[in-house]
Design a protein around this nucleic acid. Structure first.
Length: 303
RNA sequence: GGUCGAGUAGCUCAGUCGGCAGAGCAUACGCCUGAAAAGCGUAGGGUCACCGGAUCGACGCCGGUCUCGACCA
């Protein structure tokens, strides 16, 4: 079996277009989206979900997996993506992954030994964080699992709580699950990354956000808010949604909300770059003008 | 033209009695194993509008100049 292709890059880099162009030239290609927000149904405009036309032309997977009222998480995604990849393989088709969420991609490409959940432990720990601060828990983690404690900042309450939850709940150090994110073993994936000069990407992001507004993102958010079940904690933190919600709740003008969306999306894109660029297995393509024209030859030679 | 107020980091602004120039945001860099479009950390960055004066010492006090704003003519 050939290595699977992964097209990755920051938001608005054009990776979906590249994957579509590749699929158009290779029959029996199917796209698997690696994105933490496109999993929500009816959150289409703001997540830049592939269009109905694209989805009719090429099968897409790992989209619309959850209700906006659902809390979604990494482990659920990994199972869904794994199933999709297995099905595609069984069909004799070829999967092309389009990835923007670095952690989700790692969990697909590098089989991770993902610990479970211990909600009762977590409830206690979260209460303690509020009462005592995360530094106190981090000190305890240092004695229980020094390796895990060394990997995270003492102030990072979410990571500290999770590591303690797993260590106490499973009786095994958190760091004993899998090789760790700093290990980059050979995997049967060809990773190709799109890289833009930051000012150019910033312009593309601003243009895209304005296009989303023109496509009635505000209306999409209003309908989501009108749903009885509402938006879950994880869904409502999507870029473009939380800011429009703030505007609809009267906290700021629409123009201010749009400016904030653009700024935060730019910051998000930088965070994506920083995540991906540590991975030495990625082959980077510096885009000058046209992502499709410039990346397609690289994919062809890699496939 | 006159009066008053303002001018300090890329932006918005603190700065006590004259004693090493500050914050938030932005930016850069790093971290992350069931919230990851989330979360956390580190760093760089200054002609304190300008010119002069008094003082051991000025962002601060005194004199003048410039720019912006409000009000009065």
């Amino acid at each position: 079996m050939n290595d699977l292709l992964v097209v990755l890059g920051p938001t608005a880099s054009g990776k979906s277009d590249v994957a579509m162009a590749f699929a158009a030239r290779h029959a029996r290609s199917e796209i698997v989206v690696v994105d933490a927000m496109q999993v929500y149904r009816r959150m289409d405009i703001g997540t830049a979900k592939p269009s109905a036309a694209d989805r009719a032309a090429v099968p897409h997977h790992a989209l619309d997996l959850a209700e906006p009222s659902d809390e979604y998480a990494l482990a659920t995604y990994v199972r869904a993506a794994g199933t999709a990849l297995a099905d595609i393989d069984e069909r004799g088709a070829r999967a092309v992954l389009v990835a923007g969420t670095g952690l989700y991609l790692r969990a697909v490409t590098d089989p991770m030994d993902m610990p479970g959940r211990w909600p009762e432990q977590r409830a206690v720990l979260e209460a303690r964080v509020l009462a005592e601060g995360s530094e106190v828990l981090h000190r305890e983690l240092t004695s229980l699992d020094p390796v895990a404690a060394g990997r995270m900042e003492p102030g990072n309450a979410r990571r500290v709580v999770r590591a303690m939850e797993v260590t106490l709940g499973s009786g095994r150090p958190f760091s004993s699950y899998g090789p760790g994110l700093d290990q980059y073993p050979a995997v049967p994936f060809r990773l190709v990354g799109l890289r833009w000069p930051r000012p150019t990407l910033a312009e593309r992001i601003a243009a895209r956000v304005h296009r989303m507004i023109a496509a009635n993102l505000v209306g999409e958010v209003e309908s989501l808010l009108a749903e009885p079940a509402g938006l879950s904690r994880t869904a409502r933190q999507a870029l473009g949604y939380k800011e429009i919600i703030a505007h609809l709740e009267g906290e700021c003008s629409l123009d201010e909300a749009v400016d904030t969306v653009i700024l935060r999306t730019r910051q998000f894109a930088v965070r994506q770059e920083r995540w991906f660029r540590r991975d030495p297995r990625i082959r980077w393509v510096d885009i000058e003008h046209d992502p499709v024209a410039e990346v397609l030859p690289v994919l062809e030679s890699a496939s």
